[in-house]
Design a protein around this nucleic acid. Sequence first.
DNA 1: TTTTAAATTGAACACTCGTTAAAAATAAAG
DNA 2: CTTTATTTTTAACGAGTGTTCAATTTAAAA
Lengths: 200, 200
Amino acid sequence: MDAAEQEFARNGYDGASIRSIASEAEVPVALVNHHGGGKEALFWRVVARRAEDLSTARQEALSTQDAKGNSSVPELLRCFIAPLLERADHGGAQWLAYARLVAYVSADPRWEDLAAVCFDPTAQVFVDRIAAHYPTHARAAVASGFIYSIAAMLALLTSQWRMTALGDGRIETSHRLDELVAFCASGIDGCAAQKADLGH
Amino acid sequence: MDAAEQEFARNGYDGASIRSIASEAEVPVALVNHHGGGKEALFWRVVARRAEDLSTARQEALSTQDAKGNSSVPELLRCFIAPLLERADHGGAQWLAYARLVAYVSADPRWEDLAAVCFDPTAQVFVDRIAAHYPTHARAAVASGFIYSIAAMLALLTSQWRMTALGDGRIETSHRLDELVAFCASGIDGCAAQKADLGH
DNA sequence: TTTTAAATTGAACACTCGTTAAAAATAAAG
DNA sequence: CTTTATTTTTAACGAGTGTTCAATTTAAAA
């Protein structure tokens, strides 16, 4: 599974080969097929493996945040974003590979169903919580803003190099989270405000 | 080229096959190799083909906007975002495919160089213009926010379906642009503000 | 220990891939 | 018209793909 995770994250679904995975895991080729149930089933399994851990981490962060009193939108966003980013940073090579895999799955419409099963239920919870801070008729705008936020989070995982290229100074990883949360919170706010202006 | 554009956009680089492209274009297999100079060179050519048109459209939008007087950050962002989104919406199937291809290239670190050549120069111009609205020491924050914004724009191209799934109502395509610009402008603003708060 | 089940292995199959080389057809130049 | 380029076609090569199947080894159950 670890080998498949690395290979899928590095080369994508089509670029990865069962033989490379088997070679990296130092097992015969037929074993990974017998154990994984075919390439596509193996891919699903790899993505789903850490999805549950990620979801519970997000919900737990939400619970501990709620215990401190009323949760603001930035605090809610942080509960969703921090678990993945922290694991990508300090969770070892496997979690970094998995984070890239999440970005890959989320970007490719081909894995619509997989993403819907693994990530959408938790996302739904956070959209509900964030939307509660805005007028009820702005829910669609909040949902859009939340998806934009997810895209921004994944961009931080895949194209961090581009930020240092376009900017003129490297930013410490610990500050990236605060920066991203600030971006998303303000963005959702702007989204909802724009929706409110439609009637004028 | 049109056939390659469709095929690459639909299946990615590894998923696309020269034979499918040749079949869709109703030409022999060897012709596309002779004319395109190999698969990778063909991919570069396809991506670069409309990149220049896109860049000039963005810069022209910037010029006409500047002619109206001082350009605000939302107006600047609209000049960058609108050209691609308009072409994806009303530019026919080819431009829609190309838009998806841009999203694909931007997401995959494998095409770092290609993206740097085709898209980064124009992006640099817009980062400079936007950064002029903020204190000079906030340029890195603005660059980060701009990349987040690009990610959001590409998410609108690839996962529009998810917005209607997480929200509870469809939003008209014409409103999407305003919504996205509002999100990005507010987000960049929040990014720069967070950077300013670091000293406290 | 014997018997049944499961896991592991090596080898091969059928297929698609990108690329190449020589032959045929078309266009351009003299 | 003849002759040179250029483009197009046909065919095939070699490598790599996911998958399958019987043979073997290991583990578990009776």
